[in-house]
Simulated scan of single mutants.
Amino acid sequence: SPVVSSVSKLSQTNKEGQDPNKKAKNPEVGKLTEADKASIGRVQLSVFWAYLKAIGVLLSCISLLLFLAHHLVSLFSNYWLSLWTDDPVVNGTQPNRLMRLGVYGGLGLSQGED
């Protein structure tokens, strides 16, 4: 019926009388400015300081030290494994096998890994 079609046409137009399916006339809407592009991916130091204060300076320092220690132990663990694999084989076994295994196991446990 004509009443239904005119109501459906009115519901498809917005307040300005434009069809919402058509693109906006201003192509600059939604584009980043040069200032926006320059700051993408950068966090101000004040944001880090706010997090540091919220967590607590002592706890943040401890967390950072444990993080560094974990990565250093991981690095040393890989180095120790390379030393172990370079050990010569004598009579079908490596002479320092138990010591190498113990140190490698201790490094793994200190990292909290299985």
Rank of each mutant, 00 (worst) to 15 (best):
I40A: 04
F67E: 07
L68R: 08
N91M: 05
T93I: 05
L75A: 13
Y79A: 14
K37H: 06
N78L: 13
D86P: 00
R97P: 00
L59D: 13
L64E: 08
K53D: 11
A35L: 05
Q94T: 04
H70L: 03
V57G: 03
T93N: 07
S74Y: 06
S82A: 15
D36I: 02
F48L: 13
G102L: 04
S39K: 15
V57K: 09
L65D: 08
T33P: 02
F48I: 11
H70G: 03
L52D: 02
V29N: 10
E34V: 10
A35S: 09
P88F: 00
K53T: 11
Q44G: 14
V43D: 10
L83S: 08
V73Q: 02
A38C: 04
N91P: 00
G41W: 05
L59G: 01
M99R: 13
L45Q: 15
Y51V: 12
R97G: 01
F48R: 07
S63A: 15
L66K: 10
S60R: 01
S46M: 07
S77K: 06
V29H: 11
D87R: 03
L45S: 15
L52Q: 03
T33M: 04
Y79E: 14
D86F: 04
I55S: 05
Y79H: 14
R97Y: 09
A69I: 12
V47H: 13
V57L: 08
R97E: 13
T33Y: 05
I62M: 12
G102M: 04
A50W: 09
S63H: 06
S63M: 08
D87Y: 01
A69Q: 11
G92E: 04
A38E: 09
G56Q: 05
T85L: 07
F76L: 15
A35N: 05
F67Q: 05
L101V: 03
N96S: 08
S74P: 00
I55N: 05
F76E: 14
E34S: 10
D87H: 01
S82Q: 15
S74W: 05
E34N: 11
N96M: 10
Q94S: 02
F76M: 15
R42Y: 08
G30I: 03
L83H: 07
L65A: 15
L83K: 11
T93E: 11
N91I: 02
L52V: 07
V57A: 09
R100G: 01
E34H: 09
Y79I: 15
V89K: 03
L75P: 00
A69N: 10
H71P: 00
V89C: 00
H71M: 07
F76H: 13
L64C: 07
V29D: 11
M99K: 13
S74C: 02
R42M: 05
V73S: 01
L64P: 00
A50K: 14
G30R: 03
E34Q: 14
L52I: 09
D86T: 03
L65M: 14
T85A: 03
D87I: 00
L101A: 08
C61L: 14
N96L: 11
V90K: 08
V29S: 08
G102K: 03
G41D: 02
E34C: 01
N91H: 04
V73T: 06
L65E: 11
G56A: 07
A35R: 10
A50F: 08
S77C: 07
I40K: 11
S63Q: 08
L52G: 02
P95F: 04
V57S: 06
C61F: 07
S82W: 12
I55W: 04
V47E: 14
L45E: 15
T93V: 10
K37D: 02
F67S: 10
